[in-house]
């Protein structure tokens, strides 16, 4: 690229970025419909999200809105909900303590199925592109790095499994759990001198996990007439055995994402040997 083209291109890009920046920042200081200016750090949650999400129990919210809907906009301090206490309330409509999980897996579970499919297709594309790449040898790592990697790998794996098993209680879920597992395998690839990652086994595990996801949805279809319905009784909120099939789906998604990303990284390092 010549110098004049580079300068005009960067000037146009800088102008666009400044315009977008002005637009974004003035959106933060817009007044709410009551005439108050709302700064960023004391956000009133009931002003920003819809009523259904705050009550977390869609049947109650529909009944409330049917009886006194317009009064919500004027009298917002009196939003009733059943008092939900952590560790005691049983058999809610969807019993997970983490709000993001309840949206991602239960109320919008079909979109998560689409997201998992997109990840699957991108890893297939990566594997097809690494057709003729040969392996380049890395320099042999020193004795400190070799010992350290072998010692640290089980703890990283344990941390990843902890993240996706407690997906309905603490922040996290299936996707960061799988990414941490893949980082553990990346540490082994770089830190030991001859580590062969068996890509055949990991591809089989990934495919089986994807089939299990759709299988859980089909069981919900046969038992409750709706794909990906929650057919296991939701127990007490805050316990590990709560939230029905949300926990099962996050375990499946965590295993699938972990196997996928490890396969992608290992194929980039070693090249595809199937010819």
């Amino acid at each position: 690229m010549k110098k004049t083209e580079f300068l005009t291109g960067s000037f146009i890009a800088l102008t666009l970025v400044v315009l977008l920046g002005v637009f974004f920042f003035q959106a933060l200081f817009q007044p709410s419909y009551e005439g108050k200016v709302m700064p960023i750090d004391n956000v009133n949650l009931k002003d920003r999200v819809s009523l259904h999400y705050v009550l977390k129990n869609v049947n109650d919210a529909s009944k409330y809105l049917a009886t006194n809907g317009m009064r919500y906009f004027n009298n917002r301090s009196s939003v009733p909900s059943k008092t939900i206490t952590f560790g005691k309330t049983k058999n809610l409509e969807e019993g997970s303590a983490n709000e993001v999980t309840s949206i991602v897996v239960n109320y919008r579970g079909f979109d998560t199925l689409g997201e998992v499919t997109v990840l699957f297709i991108s890893i297939i594309g990566l594997t097809m592109l690494i057709g003729g790449v040969k392996e380049k040898k890395l320099r042999m790592p020193s004795v400190i790095v070799r010992t350290g990697s072998k010692f640290l790998f089980p703890f990283i794996l344990l941390f990843g499994v902890y993240i996706f098993i407690h997906g309905h209680l603490t922040p996290g879920g299936g996707f960061p759990g799988g990414a941490v597992i893949a980082s553990g395998f990346l540490l082994l690839l770089l830190g030991l001198e001859n580590f062969k990652f068996n890509t055949t086994v990991s591809k089989v595990i990934e495919s089986l996990a994807g089939v299990t996801f759709v299988g859980i949805g089909l069981v919900g279809l046969f038992m409750k007439n709706s794909f990906l319905a929650n057919f296991i009784p939701t127990g007490t909120i805050g316990f590990l055995y709560s939230a029905g099939m949300v926990a099962l789906i996050y375990i499946v998604v965590g295993i699938k994402v972990g196997a996928e990303l490890s396969t992608g990284v290992a194929e980039l390092k070693e090249g595809n040997k199937n010819d």
């Binding site: 790592p141 020193s142 400190i144 790095v145 350290g148 010692f151 640290l152 703890f155």
Partner: peptide, 16 residues
């Protein structure tokens, strides 16, 4: 403990 175990290994590898 995790920080104490991993930070010296990474700086050793950087120097090498």
């Amino acid at each position: 403990t995790f920080i104490l175990l991993t930070a010296p290994i990474s700086s050793h590898n950087l120097a090498r």
